[in-house]
Design a protein around this nucleic acid. Sequence first.
RNA 1: CGGGGUGUGGCGCAGAUGGAAGCGCACCGCGUUUGGGACGCGGGGGUCGGCGGUUCAAGUCCGCCCACCCCGACCA
Length: 478
Amino acid sequence: MSTEKLPARSENFSEWYNQVVLRAELADYAPVRGCMVIRPYGWALWENIQQALDRRFKETGHVNAAFPLFIPMSFLEKEKEHVEGFSPELAVVTVGGGETLEEPLVVRPTSETIIGYMYSKWIRSYRDLPVLINQWGNVVRWEMRTRLFLRTLEFYWQEGHTAHATEEEALEETLRMLNVYTDFAYNEAAIPVIPGRKSETEKFAGAVQSYTIEAMMGDTRALQSGTSHFLGQNFARAFDIQYLDRNNQLQYCWTTSWGLSTRFIGAIIMTHGDDQGLILPPRLAPIQIVIVPIYRSDTEQSQVMAVATQLHKQLSARFRVKVDDRSEVTPGFKFNDWELRGVPLRIEIGPKDVEKGVLTVARRDIPGKAGKSTIHPNNLEAQFAQLLDDIHLSLLKRATQFRDEHIFDPQNYEELKEVVQHGWAFSWWCGSAECEAKVKEDTKATTRCIPLEQPAGEGRCIVCGQRATQKVYFARAY
RNA sequence: CGGGGUGUGGCGCAGAUGGAAGCGCACCGCGUUUGGGACGCGGGGGUCGGCGGUUCAAGUCCGCCCACCCCGACCA
């Protein structure tokens, strides 16, 4: 616990971010460079993310399974682009039980290869298709520069891997899961992500096409928050995933993969947080309502605690509630503490409230006195459900407004260079890697996505002036 | 891997010219407090990143090594 104020977001956004993560006790640095410990509060948030996603996966027909952490080195080498993309960041095990291994094992950076290998064993007939499997697990990528949640050597995620009989079906699956992520981001996390397609240079190593949900952080940088890949027959050919169709013809499968990681926690922090700390979206918050009792004398304490305990019991049936009964810190400290931790609603119960038979409620999304109101204890569940929904909507509205205010439509290349310093540019783009590279070279901004929703007509590439049929977002990214 | 920086109680730091390791916060105890980050008194805790050297004497000077942080190249 610390009593110091956080650095202001406007002064030093990344320092604000680090301190929020550490002080809200979401995570801590591990003894190994680039690794972190996800603490109980952070893990509880992840568990809620998992639940919300897992429910959507099941609803769309997927099942969970678990594949091994170790993958034979040779597997990675079977898909050319895949190995080129991942080999620089592999952790490799060369010794086991004191003996040098016959073949080195890589610690999975992603599981397309080993799952592809298994699929080739399991799939024989069109009757076996589609295979719709998801895995919750952890992967390792030896990154050079790391940041809590946003990029660590090891991270937790889910990776879905599906195999289909036809290209159409696989493409449909790819977009279905992109929609699942979009729906999750809007309706659980209150994050207005933009779904779109990745450029050739930005796509997943080994994919035919990659789709992404891109979110704008509070400093206007972009964060890829989830991805869905159409893998074509690349991995099916590399791993011999074949089936006999109705006409007894041997065919290669069409596969997809899609993932969302603990990085999403970073997206939540940087989308909604303010100078007081975290603001957690109500549907994912580990604690939705915190009750802070206030008292002086022993008599007051017993009166107040009686109400607090009863209220806790009543509300717990429907909400995630906590009573902060710590006696060693003052109410003022607790207010700040729970605001730092982002709890959406706080109930203050003091002698005055007990006397009047009311509750004082403070909304986390509206700081200070403005967010406080007095409510009468009739139909409490409905009142709190309404309040939490209101907070969800207000967070989404605020984030959407911020996003839209920082998306620009530069009229020429000079303007583009300027706007990507403090926002995103939404511009016509010819699609060439050269133009993309030039923007990156000049501004550090990269293409984030070609949004699914495109304006009508066509224009001129913002970089080279050639005919362009699509608009793309350029932004500096995490 | 290139450029810059930092290593001293849990955290943040101070320790010119070598001469008995300190401060703030946190922690423990007691008391007073408690409606927006309380206060008093009393405590516990550090082989000064590591190894080697110079010296009567090294946190301080010299050499080597290690780790971490920031900025680049790479990335969900």
